[in-house]
Design a protein around this nucleic acid. Structure first.
Lengths: 242, 242
DNA sequence: ATAATAGTGTCTCTCAGACACTATTAA
DNA sequence: TTAATAGTGTCTGAGAGACACTATTAT
């Protein structure tokens, strides 16, 4: 402690590397997918040719905050500007990056499926791809990204049980049947229609937005999220015991 | 490892300062308190003479990980070795520390009230004190610690509604009436005894540990937490709507 | 016995789930 | 009309809350 005070203005501690990584989820073709990037085949980079979460170093000249950095990287990768973005946690230790002691700040984002199936790349040559979460978990990801991805999936699975989070995986306006399908995809089990509708409508986070043009069968009411800043919590979990 | 380290290019980004801060909660005298430290009256330090959360720089030579760093600082401050410790989040931006772009990693800890009312200080001369959360929120804390404290209180208040977290605020073994009082202190409202007991016992996280020596009235069953690694979730919130 | 605290039984209300029912659309 | 999908009504059961009741201890 005394050393700190002795060193006048700047602390003399060696500074760790500081990065931001993103876990970007989307539901496509009735499957939960995550965006991964392929690290370049360059031996001077760590983990060349391995799949990784999109991310990179905080640039103190460009990023005013960690959140800004995450927003910037999300925009660069996907073009999405107003997503659901939540901090997931940080992972920092001496060995996760061969370049030295590093701390990464993982953010958790939910976006709706892109229209054209995939995103255009920015100037960089990195290849990126939407990969089903089951498959992604089986890959040998770079750094400790497997652990971060597992934590993100745990958080999503847990929050889906009692919050409106999955609504952020849909393009607005969306219908209740679409929302229910999204819940079922993320939960991995089917839900009762009547209970589901009561629950969603009672939670009060939906706003009617005109009839949707159903392509088959009866048309459904379209909804928007009343407040995109945060998800709402339900008074109970989906399945009580078991 | 060493060959990799040597061959890898080191990034040229300027590195932010990296710190860890702790929000340590305890219930004393039927009040929720948080441990704060007084920053030294030294003009070369930022925020001299202000109250702050305990914490400091990550020492890459001593700390193998962020979590290790948090455990070390908690031990230095309180002597507690096996607390409930959970990552709260990270706050990083260009202006929160006058010494430069910095990122802090806040951890959230619950410990039981110390026997002697306060903790002995380590070698350092920093003054530390348990302060009721209401009072702490009114102080002008150093850095962005007011914001971090508010986030910690939000997390605690929210989790108390549906998890066994408050059990970590008690010394083992504890009785159900003690546990209920702890919940009531954190929630700021009273709870029905019958409903409370059914809920706790049904959740299955308690283990009987012999009768406690009640000083007055009927003696109560003592309990220990079955698994201190994590809190359990209840199937419902405490008060459903309102 | 009394005071004080620990612990239980019973009723009611709310709400989730099950499931059968009706409603609206396109072909 | 039929197929397909959207949406509703009704019953039941689990569990939370209210609250009165019993149980055990020290004095």
């Amino acid at each position: 402690m005394k050393e700190i005070r002795a060193s006048v203005r700047r602390p003399e501690f060696e500074r760790p590397l500081v990065t931001v990584d993103l876990v970007i989820f989307s539901v496509q073709d009735d499957a939960l997918k995550v965006l991964l990037v392929l690290r370049p085949q360059d031996a001077s980079d760590p983990f060349p040719g391995r799949w990784a979460l999109p991310g990179g170093f905080v640039d103190v000249t460009k990023d005013r905050s960690l959140q800004d950095c995450a927003v910037r990287k999300l925009r660069e990768k996907t073009g999405v500007v107003a997503p659901y973005l939540e901090q997931l946690g940080s992972w920092g230790d001496a060995v996760r990056d061969p370049r030295g002691w590093s701390a990464t700040h993982a953010y958790f984002s939910l976006i709706h499926a892109p229209k054209d199936g995939t995103f255009k790349e920015a100037a960089g040559a990195t290849e990126s791809q939407w990969i089903a979460v089951g498959e992604a978990s089986r890959k040998r990801l770079a750094f400790d990204h497997a652990q971060i991805l597992a934590a993100a999936m745990g958080r999503l699975r847990s929050k889906v049980e009692y919050t409106s989070l999955p609504a952020f995986l849909l393009a607005e306006p969306f219908t209740l049947p679409q929302l229910q399908r999204t819940y079922e995809v993320v939960l991995g089990r089917s839900l009762d229609k009547s209970a589901f509708r009561k629950r969603m409508l009672d939670a009060g986070f939906l706003q009617e937005a005109g009839m949707s043009d159903g392509t088959l069968g009866r048309t459904a009411m379209g909804y928007r999220i009343r407040n995109r800043e945060q998800a709402v919590s339900f008074p109970r979990m989906f399945r009580t015991g078991e």
